[in-house]
C-alpha cells in the first residue's frame, strides 16, 4: 500500500510538471528542454527556506513560485529573439547552466552533496509526514495546476496562444503583443512547475542536483509527447505511463544493476515508436508542426 501511495505521489508530481510544460510546448508550440530548472528551483527554494531560514512551509511555497517565475522570464526571453528551432538550444543551455549552479554553489544548494533533512511540510500546525498527507497535498497542487491551466487555455488568452502557435504574424497584425503573451505563458508554466519541486523536496526530504538534470527535462517532455500535448488529459496520461510502466518493470525481476538501463532502453524505444507512428501522442491534438520550421 505504501508503495502504491509512493507511485501516486510521483505521478502527481510529474503531472504538475507535464501539465505546466504543456502550456509552453503544446499551446505555444515551443520545444523547451529547461523544465527541470523550475522543478529544481522549486525544490531548492523550499529546502533553503525550511532548512536555512527556518520559515514555515507556506513561505517556502511562495518563494519557490516567485523565484521560479523570475527564472521563467529568463528562460522564455530568448524565444522572442531566436527562431523556434533554435529555442530548443537556448532552453537546454539554460538547463545546463542551472544544473551547474545547483552543483557548484554549496553555500546555498549544498553542491553535489545536496540538502538533506528537509522537514515534512507543516500546515496550520499539522506536520504532513504520512504518505497519505503528502498525497493529499500533491493532489491539491495538481488540481490547482489543472484548474489554472484549464482556465488559461479555454479563454481569450488561450485563443491568442493558439494563434501565436500557428501564425505569429497574423496575431501581431491584429494587435496581439506577442512578447507579452509568450513571457506570461513561460512565467505561469515556471511558477506551476515549481510546486512540483516543493512537494518533492518535502516528501523525499533530501534533494541533490542529479534530480534536476537535462535528462529530467527530457523525461517530462516525453510525457507530453507520449500522452499528447495540447490537451489536458494528455500530459496527465503521459505522466501515469512514464512513471508507472518503468515501475512495473521492477516486478519482472531484473537484477538491480541493470534495471535502470533496461528502463531507459524501453523509454527510448517508446520515444522512437511514438515519433514514427503517432507523433501527436495518445490524446494529443497537435503533432509538432512542420510548417513552423519554414517561418
Amino acid at each position: 500500500m505504501e508503495y502504491m501511495l509512493h507511485i501516486a505521489i510521483l505521478i502527481g508530481i510529474y503531472s504538475i510538471l507535464a501539465v505546466s510544460l504543456n502550456l509552453v510546448v503544446g499551446h505555444l508550440g515551443l520545444v523547451s528542454l529547461a523544465h527541470a530548472v523550475f522543478y529544481g528551483i522549486g525544490a531548492y527554494a523550499a529546502a533553503f527556506v525550511a532548512l536555512r531560514l527556518d520559515l514555515p512551509f507556506p513561505c517556502g511555497v511562495v518563494s519557490a513560485i516567485l523565484l521560479s517565475c523570475v527564472l521563467g522570464v529568463l528562460v522564455g526571453a530568448p524565444s522572442l529573439r531566436v527562431r523556434d528551432e533554435y529555442f530548443v538550444i537556448t532552453s537546454f543551455a539554460c538547463q545546463i547552466i542551472a544544473f551547474s549552479v545547483f552543483n557548484n554553489w554549496p553555500q546555498v544548494t549544498g553542491g553535489p552533496l545536496g540538502l538533506p533533512g528537509i522537514p515534512p511540510p507543516g500546515l496550520l500546525g499539522w506536520s504532513l509526514s504520512s504518505k497519505w498527507a503528502i498525497l493529499v497535498l500533491t493532489g491539491l497542487f495538481c488540481l490547482s495546476t489543472l484548474l489554472i491551466a484549464h482556465r488559461l487555455v479555454h479563454s481569450p488568452f488561450g485563443r491568442v496562444l493558439k494563434a501565436i502557435r500557428e501564425d505569429e504574424v497574423f496575431a501581431e497584425a491584429h494587435g496581439k503583443a506577442i512578447a507579452h503573451f509568450k513571457i506570461v505563458t513561460f512565467v505561469i508554466s515556471a511558477g506551476l512547475a515549481s510546486m512540483a519541486g516543493v512537494v518533492y523536496a518535502h516528501y523525499i526530504s533530501f534533494i541533490d542536483p542529479t534530480s534536476f538534470t537535462l535528462m529530467e527535462s527530457i523525461l517530462v517532455i516525453s510525457m507530453l509527447i507520449i500522452g499528447g500535448s495540447g490537451s489536458l488529459g494528455g500530459p496527465f496520461l503521459g505522466a501515469i505511463l512514464l512513471v508507472a510502466l518503468p515501475e512495473a518493470l521492477r516486478f519482472v525481476g531484473l537484477p538491480s544493476g541493470v534495471a535502470a538501463n533496461v528502463r531507459q532502453v524501453f523509454y527510448g524505444i517508446l520515444l522512437v515508436l511514438f515519433m514514427v507512428f503517432r507523433p501527436q501522442g495518445l490524446l494529443g491534438q497537435y503533432a509538432f508542426d512542420a510548417a513552423r520550421d519554414k517561418a
Binding site: 520545444v31 528551432e85 530548443v88 527530457i218 517532455i221 516525453s222 509527447i225 523509454y267 527510448g268 524505444i269 517508446l270 520515444l271 522512437v272 515508436l273 515519433m275 514514427v276 507523433p279 503533432a287 509538432f288 508542426d289 512542420a290 513552423r292 520550421d293
Partner: peptide
C-alpha cells in the same frame, strides 16, 4: 516531419 519530431526520435 517537423524538426522537433526528428530531434525527439534521434534522442530516443
Amino acid at each position: 516531419a517537423a524538426s522537433s519530431v526528428l530531434l525527439m526520435a534521434s534522442l530516443g
